[in-house]
Write a protein that binds this DNA or RNA. Structure first.
Length: 889
RNA sequence: GGACAAUUAGCUCAGUUGGUUAGAGCGCUCGCUUGACGUGCGAGAGGUCACAGGUUCAAAUCCUGUAUUGUCCACCA
């Protein structure tokens, strides 16, 4: 006889079990023993940054995705979960730059492009595998044979191809725009990479020069050196007369030419109601300049300094220049007012440096360009369409709204980045000539390649299909190989914070390249927060390291902590106490198996299939036996349904309730006092085999370990078929009868506690039951032995009065214990009956009213209709009530 | 400013189309050194479901408003 260890020790078996899975080859869908026509189920892992270490956010993502993957693998899908990592251009370059500066005091410019990139790759060699190893520790059943990296050879090929295709179809273009420029990163940032921070700032009200008729207000005096216009609201009576006029003068000794223009956007009530227009250094001003064909005068350069040609200001940093301009204004008596206002400062999401809006030549993906291949629709239109038509659905659904809102207001996407690490643009210049191709021009020595690299989201936007062999697996509009097998994928599971950043791009890129959606469902998870609801961060010191949790409590406990109590789209707060609870639950399951083995030797049944129907014919089955088998069937149905609906938390909760409450606390306790051992052995075998499967997607390690220890011949749980509920001819009353039994046992225990009876003291119990519960008589044995101390049990049903019926008389003395279930059921029935009679009366009165000719003729049609609706509603309600009454009777 | 959430026991949260007595875990109190598990077992205390209206026979659940908190988006010189 085998004996499992006294408690479950995750450290002993997790490594071993994972290796066993990996060696089996079943992480790879090609190796799954499936019929040719098996449906595929694919999730592409959102690639973590290579410089990342596993944090709870990853753990949560992995737990959810692995649950889905294991569930579908067991359900007979050709299941692929494809792993990969992201090169995260700017982020990675930043890390290496910082390191370089700290260790050697060098900047990337000191090294030059080539040497710097060598440094980056050296660094990556070291960090690259850390995250992948840690992902394995989570038990993630990823197909490692398909591992991809957003900057490896196949992805470079795909990205270049995509760029070239988009360029030739006019979707990618080069243009000058105001971009969000980070003077420190020396790179542009996409709109959504800019962070806004609330701050107090000075608003200066002044005139350019004494004679200038319109005072203006600004928070950035230094940019006023580049003003070429003043915009006022066309309705503004103060300034109407100046519209169209041009003024010349000197502002801080710099000559300015200012035209007064009308713009409806201008808020008459803010500042002076007039805006100094600086086309080169403000997004909105740039647009005004375009509308009014204004001159564009650049003031600030790429380093955030004032350009040449601005007298003594040239060479100063923007903020220094700002102070100098204010001084100058004060000196000349031009400053009219300084006030403090709330302002949103734009900063770089990576380094928090203040953003400078600058005009520069950049590459863009047009979201508005009509594409003949896509039915002459733009990427924006197509991406909206697939969500509106629900080809792609969002979980939870409210994110659909957010997605649509974002897509409707989408601007062209700036994809060039002035950094060195990343996908280099496949673009070469010779004078004014531009050459765009996947391969360099033949006379490459005469050309200069664009120094920029692509936005990291460009390559990750292609992730669902670049990982499946695009473009090689896509010829003449036909998918082949992996692409045909696994695209579109079924679920994209990711954080809601990158819905816009990533999800929207993936949709557009896939629509462009394949003319199909990248995924059918988008499941969005929230952030993992600490117990106080704070984001976990190193600086706050409130971070929980998942690896430490794994060491202390085991991976299964960590996974459960992240699955139970976690609902789609909402943040989850987590604290160490939760890990303890989940560790205990895992251990409980372990001990249930241990008990079944020690007491019932269920492993000796081996993998012999037990026929449930035959078993149910067996007359030796007790009420408890039937009850637990019935419970198991409903559990299977419910858990399956919940997982299909992405309700992982309730599914886990139900499993827990069954395992701990129904099985351990009731059935196993009863099994100690009932003596139909062969039947019990078979039942427990059925239950354990099914329970291990149901639990497996949640807690793969402990379930697999139990399986391997007790049923080594049954193969891996990893690919065991998911349980199917079987129809049984078990009667509905079973659960009610059993509930009554539970109620009585609880009642007795309660009474013992209340009257402080010692455990040794035996009692006599008399039950007055108004219902016929002949079954109870068969349960006397249970009641006597279930640690209730019952020595004698009398059941009076015939002739028992209602008033007495709900009480237990204890020990001859008049000690009453209400049997709540019976009382409440009765009350509920009476209440419902009353409601039914009220409703019937109401219906009768309505019908009477509606037959009344006076009413029909004189009352307005609306009122009559309303009454008719009411009647229909009441009739419906009556039906519901009747059904309900039947249910509780 | 706009949008979307959230507000239920001391804490963390369930509560799926309005319908049993609003549930669970942790914590707390009391009792069990019961041969699977003390990582356990039993019993218990603790909630006017943020507030104010409304719809309904019936509201934690639907509607309106208010307050507080959070997130995202936009952005003003």
């Amino acid at each position: 006889m085998k004996e499992l260890a006294k408690s479950y020790n995750p450290a002993d078996c997790e490594e071993k079990i994972y290796q066993k899975w990996e060696k089996s080859g079943y992480f790879n869908p090609d190796n799954l023993p499936l019929p040719e026509n098996a449906k595929s189920y694919t999730i592409i892992l959102p690639p973590p940054n290579i410089t990342d270490k596993l944090h709870l956010g990853h753990s949560s993502m992995l737990a959810i995705e692995d649950l889905l993957i294991r569930f579908h693998r067991m359900n007979g899908y050709r299941t692929l979960w494809l792993p990969g990592t992201d090169h995260a251009a700017i982020a990675t370059q930043n890390v290496v730059e910082k390191k370089l500066f700290q260790e050697k005091g060098l900047t990337r410019h000191d090294l030059g492009r080539e040497k710097f990139l060598q440094e980056v790759w050296k660094f990556l060699e070291k960090t690259q595998n850390t995250i992948l190893k840690q992902i394995r520790k989570m038990g993630a059943s990823l197909d490692w044979s398909r591992l991809a990296f957003t900057l490896d050879k196949p992805r470079q090929k795909a990205v270049a191809q995509m760029f070239v295709d988009m360029y030739h179809q006019g979707v990618i273009y080069r243009g000058e725009r105001i971009v969000n420029w980070c003077p420190r990163c020396h790179s542009t940032l996409a709109d959504d990479e800019v962070e806004h921070r609330e701050q107090k700032t000075n608003l200066y009200t002044f005139r350019y020069w004494q004679e200038f008729p319109i005072p203006i207000a600004t928070t950035r005096p230094e940019t006023k050196l580049g003003d070429t216009a003043v915009a006022v609201n066309p309705k503004d009576k103060r300034y109407q007369k100046y519209i169209g006029q041009e003024f010349k003068g000197e502002f801080c000794n710099i000559p300015l030419k200012i035209k007064v223009i009308a713009e409806r956007e201008v808020d008459m009530n803010f500042g002076t109601g007039a805006v100094g227009v600086t086309p080169a250094h403000s997004m909105t001003d740039w647009k005004m300049a375009e509308n009014n064909r204004l001159e564009i005068k650049k003031v600030i350069d790429e380093d955030g300094k004032i350009r040449a040609g601005f007298g003594r200001f040239s060479g100063l940093s923007a903020s220094e220049a700002g102070r100098e301009v204010v001084k100058e204004l004060k000196k000349n008596g031009l400053l009219e007012k300084v006030e403090e206002i709330d302002n949103a400062l734009s900063t770089c999401y990576r380094c928090q440096t203040t953003i400078e809006p600058l005009p520069s030549k950049q590459w863009f993906v047009s979201v508005h360009k009509k594409i003949p291949r896509l039915g002459n629709k733009s990427l924006q239109e197509k991406a909206l369409e697939v969500a509106q038509k629900e080809e792609i659905s969002f979980i939870p659904n409210r994110f659909k709204k957010r997605y649509l809102h974002w897509m409707e207001n989408l601007h062209d996407w700036c994809i060039s980045r002035q950094i060195w690490f990343g996908h280099r643009l496949p673009v070469w210049y010779k004078g004014d000539e531009i050459y765009v191709n996947t391969k360099p021009p033949k006379d490459v020595e005469n050309w200069i390649q664009d120094p920029d690299v692509l936005d990291t989201w460009f390559s990750s936007g292609m992730w669902t299909f670049s990982t499946l062999g695009w473009p090689d697996n896509f010829k003449n509009g036909q998918k082949t190989g992996d692409l045909a097998k696994f695209h579109p994928t079924q679920v994209l599971e990711t954080g809601y914070e990158i819905l816009t950043l990533w999800v929207s791009r993936m949709i557009m890129m896939s629509l462009f390249a394949l003319e199909e959606i990248p995924f059918e469902n988008v499941y969005l998870h929230g952030m993992v927060l600490d117990a106080q609801g704070q984001k976990m961060s190193k600086s706050k010191g409130n971070g929980i390291d998942p690896l430490e949790v794994i060491n202390e409590y085991g991976t299964d406990a960590l996974r459960l902590s992240l699955l139970i109590g976690n609902t789609p789209g909402n943040n989850i707060k987590i604290s160490p106490e939760k890990f303890v609870g989940m560790r205990n639950l895992v251990n409980k399951l372990w001990n249930i198996a241990r008990y079944m083995e020690i007491k019932f030797q269920i492993s000796e049944i081996g993998n012999e299939q037990k026929n449930l129907e035959q078993l149910l014919q067996n007359k030796k089955l007790t009420l408890a036996d039937k009850w637990i088998l019935q419970k198991l069937q409903t559990l299977i149905i419910s858990v399956t349904k919940q997982i299909k609906n992405y309700n992982f938390s309730p599914a886990g909760q139900e499993l827990k309730d069954f395992t701990w409450n129904d099985l351990a606390d009731w059935y196993l306790e009863i099994s100690k006092v009932e003596n139909n051992l062969p039947e019990k052995q078979q039942i427990l075998h059925i239950i354990l085999v099914n329970l291990l499967k149901l639990w497996h997607p949640f807690i793969p390690f402990v379930t697999e370990e139990i399986q391997q220890e007790l049923f080594p011949d049954s193969g891996l749980l990893l690919i065991s078929p998911w349980p199917k509920a079987k129809k049984t001819n078990l009667k509905k009353e079973i659960s009610q009868d059993f509930q009554l039994l539970q109620e009585i046992v609880s009642g007795i225990r309660k009474a013992r506690t209340e009257y402080k009876l010692s455990p040794q003291q035996k009692i006599k119990v008399i039950i007055y039951s108004p219902e016929k519960h002949s079954l109870l008589k068969e349960q006397v044995n249970i009641l006597k032995n279930l640690q209730t101390g019952v020595e004698e049990l009398v059941i009076k049903s015939q002739g028992a009065k209602i008033e007495q019926a709900h009480f237990l008389a204890l020990n001859g003395a008049e000690i009453y214990i209400p049997l709540q279930n019976i009382i409440n059921l009765r009350k509920e029935r009476e209440k419902t009956k009353k409601e039914i009679s009220v409703t019937k009366k109401f219906i009768a009165s309505l019908e009477k009213k509606l037959k009344n000719k006076n009413f029909l003729q004189k009352a307005p049609a609306e009122v009559v209709n309303k009454e008719k609706e009411k009647l229909a509603g009441q009739k419906n309600k009556l039906k519901n009530l009747n059904e309900y009454l039947e249910k509780i009777s």
